[in-house]
């Protein structure tokens, strides 16, 4: 019993320490944000790598998710003779919730884990120590450019997922639900007209993009912090990657709820 409590206590303390490390690292990276302009060519390189690496899978997932959303909601709406509004449901659903969520999901499982592995390998092979000895701040040199790149890439991928999701929904609406293309698109545009604030921007779009920025920041902070904490060779790097993916997914779900609540609650 004592041993069990001891290991539970150690686990909780370890988890809290890791969370604290992640928050501190993220804050330190934000403290170097003024250097982002100087590092912009490097940031662009990271954006290109992260965006291109995840583009095919993001596009496929976005397209099929829109199709699933249209089919599921369309069949239910058809029972009440309301199938024409499927365009509204798909567009609002994708822009508000599923677009940023899918982009973040794909990024955390590909880029987040990749970052943890890359930085973790650098940590265990003393490359991070080498930077410190050369008086080069690893947070400014390694963390900040990657974090900024992810904060910019996630909204871009979100726009792509939103668009492809609506297209996937259109295909299903026209071919399987008997909704005309004209009606679907009219409803989709109506969904974006529903509420316009913040310089007349569709609220569903900008809240979705704001979520995407937060998700990009979260994935970067969690993945990079997991890498920076890695120790003990290949085993430690593997552990860092696993922790990064699990924590990213958990935080994205939790943050998604609270952000929706903050914007619409």
């Amino acid at each position: 019993m004592t041993r069990w409590l001891d290991s539970l206590g150690r686990g909780i303390v370890g988890y809290c320490a890791a969370a604290g490390d992640t928050i501190l690292l993220a804050l330190r990276a934000l403290g170097h944000i003024d250097g982002a302009l100087r590092k912009f060519p490097e940031i662009l390189g990271h954006m290109y790598a992260y965006g291109i690496r995840t583009l095919p899978v993001t596009a496929v997932v976005g397209l099929f998710f829109g199709a699933i959303l249209a089919l599921q909601t369309g069949l239910a709406l058809d029972l009440y003779g309301q199938v024409e509004v499927v365009g509204i449901v798909v567009t609002a659903g994708m822009c508000r919730e599923m677009g940023p969520f899918i982009a973040a999901l794909v990024l955390s499982s590909t880029v987040g884990s990749g970052m943890a592995a890359e930085i973790g390998t650098m940590k265990v092979s003393e490359e991070v120590d080498a930077l410190e000895i050369m008086a080069i701040d690893p947070v400014r040199f390694l963390v900040m450019p990657r974090l900024v790149a992810l904060m910019l890439v996630c909204p871009i991928l979100t726009i792509l997922v939103d668009f492809l999701g609506v297209v996937g929904g259109l295909v299903v609406a026209v071919t399987q639900l008997g909704v005309s293309q004209h009606v679907y698109l009219e409803q989709a545009i109506e969904a974006l007209r529903y509420e316009r604030t913040f310089w007349e921007w569709p609220k569903d779009v900008y809240t979705g993009l704001a979520k995407a920025v937060v998700f990009g920041f979260t994935i970067g902070a969690v993945g990079l912090a997991a890498g920076m904490r890695a120790s003990g060779g290949a085993l430690g790097v593997g552990r860092a990657v696993r922790n990064a993916v699990v924590n990213c997914l958990l935080l994205i779900i939790i943050f998604s709820y609270y952000l929706t609540w903050a914007f619409y609650g």
Binding site: T121, M122, S125, E126, E127, D129, A130, L131, I133, M134, A135, I136, F141
Partner: peptide, 28 residues
Amino acid sequence: RFGYLFQSAALINWLDIEANVALPLREH
């Protein structure tokens, strides 16, 4: 004021040889 040669050399893996040697000069 220090130079440090690591056991594993600890070169930055995505920079070529020239960029690795130039790194402290470019940064400082």
